[in-house]
Write a protein that binds this DNA or RNA. Structure first.
Lengths: 372, 372
DNA sequence: GCTAGCACTCGTTCCCGCCGAGTGCTAACG
DNA sequence: CGTTAGCACTCGGCGGGAACGAGTGCTAGC
C-alpha cells in the first residue's frame, strides 16, 4: 500500500565529505560505489538496528553473540572493514566497535528498511485521540505535536497550516469597552483569528454589529490586496475596519511569524548523546522557531516525507540530528509542516511511518475544513 | 511604598523538622529562639547572599577574604556554629563550608532582605514589552510568563484568569461547513472562547446569524445555570445553542482544566543543583499542570505574594524548590495565579519584587477589560 | 573463502595518594 | 570576657597508574 522507497533525500550529497572519516580512503567521491553484497547488506542492517537500539558502538564479537549470523566474528570483521572503506561505517576509536555514518543511515533508509507502515495499533490509538476532541483546526496542531512525539518517541515539530492566499469568509465585531473591540475573522480555510482593536471613537455592540453586517457581504471571498483596494473608497469606520481586516489577513501568510509547536523534548533529554552537554542548548534550539527557519528553505514542496541525516542538514545546529519532515495540507491552498527530530541514530522506520501517517491525517482535516 | 515585610509564609512550620540536621541539638522545636545578635544577622545575610550567587557552601575564611567583615575567620566560625545550632545553617559535609537551611532562607526573606521594589529599569522594560502587543487577555498570559521568567531569571508559571461565576456578554455563530459551525462567546470579563460545534442539520451563515441575533439579547448577562434554566423552555436549534453556551461557560470556571503556562526552564537547567540529575524530571514537573495542582490548594486568597521554601512546599516534588506565588485579578470576580519556581537558593528579593510587580500589572489589565 | 589464534590498542573503571578548604578546639591576648 | 592565632583533623576533588575487557588487524591453517 505504501511504497517504502518513496522517501526523498534531503540534500543530494554530503556538503562536507571530509568531516569525520579516519585516515583511510574515504572513497565515495568520484568512483561509483560497487554494489554491496547481500551479506554486507545484512550486516549493515544489523549494525544500524543494534546501534539505534543501544547507542553503543557495535563490535564483531557481540554481533555474533546476540544474533544468529551464520559466520564467525573474524568474517564479520572482514566485511565490516569493507563497509568502513566504502563509507558506511566508521570507528570512533581504534577499538570499541563501529558506528554507522550518515551515509550508512541513508543506505539503510533507502534499501534496508522493511515495511514502513505505522502499526495499526498506533493508527487506532491516534485516530482515537483525534476523535476525542472537538476543537478548532489550530488546536489540532498542538494535539498533532504531542501525539507525534509520543508515537515516534522523540521530539516533534508542527507548524500551523498557512494559506497561500488567504481569503476572508466572515468576520464579526464585538464590543469590549466603549473604545475597544474584538475583531474575529474566519478564512475560507477555516482559520480563525481574533484581534483586539482600539476603536477611534466611543461605540457599542449595536453599531458594531450593524457595521459588520453591512460590510461582510461586501468583502466575502476577498484577499488582503482586494480588501485594500476596497478600503480606499470607504468612509471612516468602514475604512478602519477594512484596514484591520487587511492587516490580519496579511499576517496569516507571513512566513516570518509561523509558530512552531514542539513536543516530546523529554524524550531525547535522557539519551546518552545529549546527556552531558547542553540541555539548555537543546531547549534553545526548539524555542522561538529558529529551528524551522533553518530547515524550511530546503524543504521541497513534494507530498512525501523527506529525511535529513546528520550533515545533510542545512543548519549547523542540526548536524547532530536526524530530521524527518513532511508538508501537509491541501496543495497550493493551505499547507503546514510537521515532522520529528532526533539523534542521527533514530528509528527511521518508525519515524517515517509516523510522520507520513500524521501528515495524511492532518491533510484530511484541513481538506475537510476548507470550503471551496 | 511597598512594605518589604508584607510577605506571608507558605506553611507555618517545617513539616519534617528532623530531616537534614547533623547529630547536634536541632533546637527550634519547643523553646523560643533567642533573638539573633546584630552580628549574627549580618553574617547570615552574607552567607545567604553568597550562597545564592555561587551555589557553593561558604566557609569562614572565604567570607572574610571576599567581604570586609571586621573580624577574623575564627570569630565567624563561632558565630556560624551558633547559627547552625539555632537551625539557620547546616553543613552538608564535615568540612566544606555551610549552607542556609530552609529556616535560614525564611529568616532572610522576613528580616534581612533589603528593598524589594523592582528596579525601575526593569519596570520600564516590562511596561514597554506589554505596550508593544495589542492582543487578547489570554495572550497576555503568555507574555507575562516569558517576561517574568526573564526578569526573575528562573522558571515562571502563570495561569489564565478564571472568572468566579462567568457571565455571558455576547456570542456569535459562524458557518464553516453545512453541518459545522464555530461558536464564539465573550464573557463580561472579556474572556473569549471558540468552540466548533457539529450542527444537527444543514444550515448556512444567514440562518445562524438570525439565530444568534435572536438569542443574544435573551441571554446577555446570564450565568451557566441561568442559561440552563432558559434552555429548558426553548425549541430545537435555540435549545441546542443554549446547551453549547452553557457547557462552554461551565468549562471556564472548571478548576481541573486550568492551563498553566510556564517559561524559562532553560534558566534553571544549567544550574549545578539540577545538572546531573533529571532534566526529564524537571520537564515533567512543569508539563501538564501537575505542578499547580499540588500548590494551588495551599494558596491563600490574600492579595500579597506568598513564599514557599523547600520543605514548606505542600508537594513532595517541590521539596527541592523555592516557590514565590501571587494571585492576580479582580477580587472575587476573576483571578489567576502567577509566580516563579527556582532552587531554594534563589534571589528571593528579586523574585518577590518581580512577582509582585507582574501581579499588579496583570490585575490592572484584567480590571480594565472587565465590564461591570 | 572461512575461521582460529594472537599480539596490540584503547577506553573504562577502580584505587590510592595528594592537596586544599574548612572545622573545632585550645591557649594566648587585649 | 570577647577575640584571635595556631593546630590537628576531616573530607571532597583531582590526577596518575594498574587492571580489565572489548575490539581490531593480521597471519596461518582448514
Amino acid at each position: 500500500m505504501i511504497d517504502p522507497q518513496a522517501v526523498s533525500q534531503g540534500a543530494p550529497g554530503s556538503p562536507d565529505p571530509g568531516a569525520g572519516a579516519a585516515g583511510a580512503a574515504t572513497s565515495s567521491a568520484g568512483s561509483p560505489l560497487p554494489p554491496l553484497t547481500e551479506r554486507q547488506r545484512a550486516i549493515l542492517r544489523l549494525i544500524v538496528q543494534e546501534y539505534v537500539q543501544t547507542g553503543r558502538p557495535v563490535g564483531s564479537k557481540g554481533l555474533t553473540e546476540r544474533h544468529a549470523v551464520g559466520v564467525s566474528p573474524a568474517t564479520i570483521r572482514n566485511e565490516m572493514a569493507g563497509l568502513e572503506e566504502a563509507g558506511y561505517l566508521q570507528s570512533p576509536h581504534t577499538s570499541g566497535g563501529r558506528v554507522p555514518t550518515d551515509q550508512g543511515y541513508r543506505y539503510f533508509v533507502h534499501h534496508l528498511m522493511g515495511a514502513v507502515e505505522l502499526p495499526s495499533v498506533d493508527q487506532i490509538m491516534i485516530r482515537h485521540q483525534f476523535r476525542q476532541v472537538e476543537v478548532q483546526l489550530e488546536q489540532w496542531v498542538e494535539l498533532a505535536a504531542s501525539v507525534l512525539a509520543e508515537t515516534a518517541g522523540i521530539v516533534s515539530v508542527v507548524t500551523a497550516p498557512r494559506p497561500a492566499v488567504p481569503r476572508l469568509r466572515h468576520f464579526e465585531l464585538i464590543a469590549l469597552q466603549p473604545r475597544l473591540a474584538l475583531l474575529i475573522l474566519v478564512t475560507h480555510e477555516s482559520l480563525v483569528r481574533q484581534v483586539m482593536v482600539r476603536w477611534p471613537e466611543d461605540t457599542d455592540q449595536e453599531s458594531l454589529s450593524r457595521l459588520a453586517d453591512a460590510l461582510v457581504s461586501e468583502v466575502r471571498g476577498l484577499t488582503a490586496d482586494e480588501i485594500a483596494a476596497r478600503a480606499r473608497g470607504g468612509d471612516g469606520p468602514a475604512r478602519f475596519v477594512l484596514g484591520q481586516l487587511e492587516g490580519t489577513l496579511r499576517g496569516l501568510d507571513a512566513v516570518g511569524q509561523t509558530e512552531v509547536r514542539h513536543s516530546g523534548l523529554e524524550n531525547i533529554l535522557g539519551l546518552p548523546e545529549f546527556a552531558g552537554a547542553d540541555a539548555q542548548g537543546l531547549l534553545d534550539l526548539f524555542r522561538g522557531g529558529a529551528f524551522l527557519g533553518a530547515v524550511l528553505p530546503q524543504l521541497g514542496a513534494g507530498p512525501d516525507v523527506q529525511v535529513f541525516i546528520g550533515d545533510e542538514n542545512p543548519a549547523d545546529a542540526l548536524r547532530r540530528f536526524g530530521v524527518v519532515l513532511s508538508t501537509y495540507g491541501v496543495d497550493g491552498s493551505v499547507t503546514g509542516i510537521l515532522g520529528v527530530v532526533g539523534p542521527t541514530r533514530m528509528a527511521y522506520g518508525r519515524s517515517i511511518s509516523s510522520v507520513r501517517y500524521m501528515a495524511r491525517l492532518m491533510s484530511d482535516l484541513v481538506a475537510d475544513l476548507s470550503s471551496a
